[in-house]
Amino acid sequence: MSATRTRRRRRIPAALLAPAVIGLAFLILPLAGLVVRAPWTELPARLAEPEMLAALRLSLVTATAATALSLLFGVPIAWLLARGDFPGRSVLRALVTVPLVLPPVVGGVALLLVFGRSGIIGAPLYERFDLTIPFTTTAVVLAMTFVSMPFLVVSVEGALRGADTRFEEAAATLGAGRWTVFTHVTLPMVAPGVLAGAVLCWARALGEFGATITFAGNFPGTTQTMPLAVYLALQSDLEAAIVLSLILLAVSVIVLASLRDRWTAAP
């Protein structure tokens, strides 16, 4: 039975198979190389180094803060895009998703112009409150939020569109106002989408490089996140760069595994 099935199965054309294999090798081998080259024996000692720990800690704190900000502002944006009925909604959606494709460096430059000491927002902040945002940890969080929030918005908007609004109607007939409907029915029902969006957003924030180095600089302890540390270490200490890269790779794999069903399952 299975023999006949195998025989009947169409053979994969070589013209497709060859490039596919080469492409797969190209995607997988570098990562494998990273794992092979890793200084496994000294890994614990390496990880305990203060600069390493500082970068690690800063990355975790800022990425988490950026995710929190994205949730705070991104979920309402997603709701507006999914449920709102106003002119220019599609334009707004396009604008929100621009950072997805925008080179992060450009984002960094834009942020610098707005929040810099002579920027539209930066100038009054500096003059009135003596606050400087660029090249601070706050700038790191803002840069991360700028590039990663669209991931959350897109994910949550998709979840909201997929949710059955009749449940919201049912809640309304039971006496729930709009806000209660949102907190007690809509949000719990799209929770998986929100969670997936948050995880994706967090992973993107963790890997943020271009906007961060442009807008926040590269100061150990305050703005030097892991990707920045990797870049710096490459020039002096290859082993350290590998260790940091390994951590980022591990995080990516974990994130992907946690989103397995949503992102990698075959349709």
Partner: peptide, 20 residues
């Protein structure tokens, strides 16, 4: 008057019980 203030109960065709 919006639905939440009408004091009307509805049994929907496929019930729409909140799954969570």
């Amino acid at each position: 008057v919006p639905p939440e203030h009408r004091g009307i109960g509805v049994v929907f065709q496929d019930y729409l019980l909140f799954p969570h």
